[in-house]
Simulated assay, not measured.
Amino acid sequence: MKIGLFFGSFNPIHIGHLIIANYMANYTDLQQVWLVVSPLNPLKKKSDLINIYDRLEMAKLATEDALNLRVSDIELKLPQPSYTIDTLTYLQEKYPEHEFSLIMGADNLASIKKWKNYELLLRDYHIHIYPRPGYEIKEFKDHPSITITETPLMELSATFIRKAWKEGKNVQFLVPDKALKFMDSKNLYR
């Protein structure tokens, strides 16, 4: 099976994440998308990150009715910090029957040279790129491992949602209902 791995902190998961994952699972050659909830991105600050178990639970609640979307906690089982190449290597060994691809935004592609063993990622894995506001894809545009998709452009961010929620603003329709109820019940991000 062709599986796309969509890595993220999902802090919190929101409709932008789900639209991207759903697009990749239904409008590309991928048969399934796994949302890989990362404990901590080595290239980001930890400051606003709530615990991984709450982020995993919100992602599971948000995707429980989706046919071809799954949530993965694989990076919890690997040494920290978690690097994409290490996770891919582990998954390929654990599930040799699957073909894994990466899903990433144009912003991540622009900084891929900062990633651990990025050359191996480009050599050994296919990468599906979705557009991000303010990022034009120039470098790697014609790379044989890169597929640039027409995923709807999302200008929604978890940072925006956290800030709005903290200020008491309504984020209904931006965060899936079940995840929003979970956030509210645990008083997350406030």
Score class of each variant (00 low, 15 high):
100 F>R: 08
103 I>T: 09
180 L>Y: 00
61 L>S: 08
155 E>I: 02
53 Y>G: 06
100 F>S: 03
144 P>Q: 13
40 L>W: 02
42 P>G: 06
2 K>R: 13
176 P>K: 02
146 I>D: 10
145 S>N: 12
60 K>Y: 10
60 K>G: 10
87 T>K: 03
31 Q>F: 12
155 E>T: 03
160 F>C: 05
34 W>I: 11
112 I>V: 01
167 E>Y: 12
188 L>H: 05
59 A>Y: 00
183 M>T: 04
16 G>W: 03
145 S>Q: 13
123 R>D: 09
110 A>H: 11
75 E>Q: 04
108 N>D: 12
58 M>R: 09
151 T>N: 08
155 E>Q: 05
126 H>Y: 12
127 I>W: 01
173 F>D: 10
153 L>N: 05
96 P>C: 06
28 T>V: 10
76 L>N: 14
95 Y>A: 08
33 V>N: 04
129 I>A: 08
170 N>H: 04
45 K>W: 08
15 I>S: 13
87 T>P: 05
15 I>H: 14
121 L>N: 02
81 P>K: 01
121 L>M: 07
25 A>N: 10
94 K>H: 13
84 T>M: 10
7 F>I: 00
91 L>M: 13
33 V>E: 02
132 R>G: 10
126 H>Q: 13
59 A>F: 04
180 L>Q: 05
95 Y>R: 10
56 L>C: 04
13 I>S: 08
138 K>H: 14
21 A>W: 00
155 E>W: 00
166 K>F: 06
58 M>V: 02
4 G>H: 09
76 L>S: 07
65 D>G: 11
91 L>P: 00
48 D>R: 08
146 I>K: 03
60 K>I: 08
98 H>Y: 13
141 K>R: 15
50 I>E: 13
44 K>L: 06
142 D>I: 08
49 L>V: 03
77 K>V: 00
94 K>C: 07
124 D>K: 00
100 F>W: 14
146 I>T: 06
156 L>S: 14
152 P>A: 05
103 I>H: 11
129 I>C: 07
52 I>R: 04
128 H>T: 11
15 I>Y: 14
37 V>A: 11
119 E>P: 01
119 E>V: 02
11 N>T: 01
178 K>S: 06
133 P>V: 15
124 D>A: 01
50 I>N: 12
6 F>N: 03
185 S>E: 15
35 L>G: 03
27 Y>F: 11
20 I>E: 07
85 I>A: 00
64 E>T: 12
129 I>D: 01
25 A>Q: 03
148 I>S: 11
38 S>K: 07
46 K>P: 08
108 N>A: 12
135 Y>I: 01
54 D>W: 08
95 Y>K: 11
2 K>A: 01
37 V>P: 00
51 N>G: 04
16 G>I: 05
142 D>L: 06
76 L>R: 09
96 P>T: 02
107 D>A: 04
4 G>Q: 11
65 D>R: 14
139 E>P: 07
148 I>G: 07
175 V>Y: 01
26 N>S: 09
117 N>M: 08
68 N>A: 13
153 L>I: 11
18 L>P: 06
16 G>V: 03
182 F>L: 05
129 I>F: 05
109 L>R: 02
11 N>L: 11
90 Y>A: 09
54 D>M: 07
160 F>G: 12
174 L>E: 09
177 D>A: 15
57 E>Q: 15
185 S>H: 15
